[in-house]
Nucleic acid binder design. Sequence first.
DNA 1: TGCCAGGCCGGGT
DNA 2: ACCCGGCATGGC
Length: 224
Amino acid sequence: MTDTISNQNINISSQLWSMHRSLLKFYGPLHWWPGETELEIMIGAILTQNTNWQNVSKAIEKIKEEGLLDVQALLRIEAEYLGKLIKSCGYYNLKAQRLKNFLSFFYNKYDGSAEKLFSRNGQVLRTELLKVNGIGPETADSILLYAGKKPIFVVDAYTRRIFQRHGYFSHNEDYEDIQCFFMSHLPCEHSLYNEFHAQLVMVGKEYCKKNNPSCPQCPLFSFL
DNA sequence: TGCCAGGCCGGGT
DNA sequence: ACCCGGCATGGC
């Protein structure tokens, strides 16, 4: 009985590892997250909520053009003006406020210093981030993994959809269930989680869209 | 043209 | 504890 269970677990682990290796061959190293500083990555994580990255990068460019990629500068300007700058990424009023919520937290509690922020324990910081209005589990984990280099697996719509299609999930697992699935079957390394999530997003964008059946060109086709 | 994108919140059952 | 509507632009 226990043998069966642990064999299954070993099996899942090797499947996941093998998928990751195939994707590495297919895409090469992806060097995520796109963004030069921790602040830029964290802003991107909020702006990309339910939004195409292309629209987000335009918004970030605007902020940079205005010389406002700075915690205090962004806190000083009106939310309405910030909304105009980030208009291209959609939900711009909402996201302007969410950015300000996060930046206030970041500035008031950590002096706007990424070094101070990420000197905290990952799980402790996660619960703090989740208290900020506008930061949910995926945004918190993206910040922790990609800006903070914490070994925390990020789950997004693509991850869910791809592994549903491969028969690992049904449709009612919550975020924590899926995150636990990956973290319990993979070594706890931030570089692995970084690369794997980036790979899943690439596969999702190109081969696993919503109403787009799996095709032989998909690098994960042989795993179906 | 219509559908989709790297979610999250608040209110109602 | 779920379920749902709202938020909104730009690309294909």
